[in-house]
């Protein structure tokens, strides 16, 4: 599937705005991305496995509230850095 990478995370992806990756769930997709881009996951998922405050995930346009959604037949995961102010 295609994963859209927001600007603040592109240091990890050599400035790529989108990458192709696989995963059965959102959690396993992020594990795969962290293997390829070390450090990527911790910047957006905290040590308790929760999505950080200003990060949003959209799975084929539907917002995910945790890492459990399955990604079977999903075409696109979009990572969004929401407004953080200041």
């Amino acid at each position: 599937m295609r994963v859209l990478i927001p600007g603040p995370l592109r240091d990890y992806t050599a400035n790529a705005a989108a990458v192709s990756a696989d995963g059965h769930t959102l959690g396993s997709l992020l594990a795969e991305l962290d293997r390829r881009f070390p450090g990527f996951r911790f910047r957006i998922i905290d040590e308790q496995g929760r999505i950080r405050r200003h990060i949003k995930f959209f799975v084929d346009g539907v917002q995910a509230n945790d890492l459990n959604p399955t990604l079977d037949n999903v075409a696109e995961v979009m990572i969004v850095c929401a407004l953080s102010g200041g």
Binding site: P6, F42, I44, R52, G85
Partner: peptide, 22 residues
């Protein structure tokens, strides 16, 4: 950053180049 979680960067050459903590 305002969006991204906390990390630590390390330089071995007095700040010329930096690498993120593993």
């Amino acid at each position: 950053t305002g969006h991204l979680g906390p990390t630590i960067f390390r330089s071995a050459d007095r700040g010329r180049t930096w690498h993120e903590a593993k």
